[in-house]
Amino acid sequence: MPKRPRKREHGGGRERLYLVFDDWCHGYSIRKVNLLPGENHQRTAFSDQDDQDKVPHFPRPFFRMVAPRESPKYFTSAFGTRILAMHPRDPEGDLLEGYFPMLDVRSRCVTTGPGQRDLFYPIYHLPVGNKLFTMSFYSFEMLCLESFEMLCLEELSAKVSHRDSSKEWSWKELEQQPFNVCDVTSYSLHPEERTFLISTKEDTTEATYSFDTERHSWKLLGNWVLPFDGQGHFDQHLKAFVGLSKEPDTLGQIYCCDVPIYGTPEGRCPVPSMNLCKENLFISGDPMDKHVGATLVYMGGVSKFCLVQCVNKEVRVPGLSLPGSWMYRLTTFSLSLDDQRKELTTGDTCHSQYYKVPKATTKSLLVQDPVAFWM
């Protein structure tokens, strides 16, 4: 009896990178990219326009979603392998406008959840288990999915139910957070997957809070912040949070931060140990690359990551630089710490691949950080 093929370590053989673009007249397309080892070895510098013309396009759309364009900040992932388009809906409009779509990328099935009327920027989507916490300027709410049914598109005509499926969903308004959401600098899910850590900075005042997703309670951990910008990922191999820096002095470098120690006698957590990667991942070796935005994606495995970077390939004439082609630069890499947990490095693991951005993508989407999910 032949042996089953071994699963690849890089993503377990099924995971893929999913990217969202508003390159469709009615909304967004989702593109699926295979990042298996050995498939993205490409030089990162271009000698002339002919080289740029050889850059591949992204694969054809994996799926399309109807939603207002130029608003990528409303996309999130939750509940396993589902991508959610949580754009605000018109409460007085058509019935379907009161819901948001969810796509399961494994089964290509779609279901809907009850939409929200007010989602004011900035917005943070914090998924854990069968719950999704949404924190915006005026509200902090929880969407609970105790049980729900997946509606398969090809079976709708035969098995559609007349009962109100929205009864299986519910939004619950929670106690307002003890800080201004505009002051949030970074956040991450604790490895025990019950508590969120959220850091804030107002002028020179720094603070990190925890939110218990079962007790629905806030707690001040200390007057320090997680060092990275935006979302951090807990890496099982490093046993630490990993995130991207967007500060001017460290732009394009990776931070590694130990998990804060809870339960100290004074009730506060001491400042966790932090490390800064010596390599700058925004530097491609091509002087024509102008950095626009970036998103760090955790791929699991042995500290495997993908940096999704949007760049503009400038056109240079004597004494002048002009905007050129928009591209995504996908850089996969692994992180390692030495035995003393002092030096964080990517070693020789970085491999990059350029892709041309779909032509109809709006500039409003391109100037924001890419929407990228690994699942």
Results as ranks from 00 to 15, higher is better:
residue 124 Y to S: 02
residue 31 R to M: 03
residue 201 K to T: 13
residue 8 R to M: 09
residue 121 Y to T: 07
residue 64 R to A: 04
residue 126 L to C: 03
residue 321 S to I: 05
residue 240 A to F: 07
residue 208 T to N: 01
residue 365 L to F: 07
residue 187 Y to S: 06
residue 114 P to I: 04
residue 228 F to S: 08
residue 120 F to H: 14
residue 176 Q to N: 08
residue 102 M to S: 14
residue 279 E to W: 11
residue 312 N to L: 10
residue 243 G to I: 10
residue 133 F to N: 01
residue 56 P to M: 06
residue 353 Q to K: 15
residue 363 K to I: 15
residue 19 L to E: 03
residue 144 C to V: 08
residue 118 D to L: 09
residue 80 G to H: 08
residue 105 V to E: 03
residue 260 P to S: 10
residue 169 W to H: 15
residue 318 P to K: 07
residue 102 M to N: 14
residue 184 V to P: 00
residue 268 R to N: 07
residue 224 W to K: 07
residue 52 Q to V: 15
residue 67 A to H: 11
residue 1 M to L: 12
residue 73 K to T: 09
residue 358 P to S: 12
residue 211 F to A: 02
residue 88 P to H: 10
residue 275 N to P: 00
residue 280 N to T: 07
residue 270 P to L: 07
residue 286 D to A: 05
residue 363 K to G: 13
residue 1 M to A: 14
residue 272 P to W: 08
residue 139 S to Q: 13
residue 135 M to Q: 05
residue 366 L to H: 11
residue 64 R to P: 04
residue 100 F to T: 02
residue 28 Y to D: 10
residue 164 D to H: 14
residue 97 E to Q: 06
residue 33 V to E: 00
residue 359 K to A: 12
residue 345 T to N: 03
residue 258 D to Q: 06
residue 342 K to S: 13
residue 235 D to Y: 13
residue 257 C to F: 05
residue 341 R to N: 10
residue 281 L to K: 03
residue 102 M to G: 05
residue 314 E to W: 04
residue 269 C to G: 09
residue 258 D to T: 03
residue 317 V to S: 10
residue 220 L to W: 04
residue 193 E to A: 12
residue 59 P to W: 08
residue 83 I to T: 02
residue 94 D to F: 02
residue 318 P to Y: 05
residue 221 L to E: 08
residue 158 A to Q: 07
residue 196 F to A: 06
residue 140 F to C: 04
residue 264 T to M: 11
residue 139 S to A: 14
residue 74 Y to L: 01
residue 157 S to W: 04
residue 171 W to H: 10
residue 340 Q to M: 11
residue 294 A to I: 02
residue 243 G to M: 10
residue 367 V to L: 12
residue 298 Y to P: 00
residue 253 Q to W: 01
residue 29 S to C: 12
residue 150 M to R: 07
residue 320 L to C: 12
residue 348 D to P: 01
residue 97 E to N: 06
residue 356 K to E: 15
residue 185 T to L: 05
residue 51 D to N: 15
residue 62 F to Y: 15
residue 310 C to W: 00
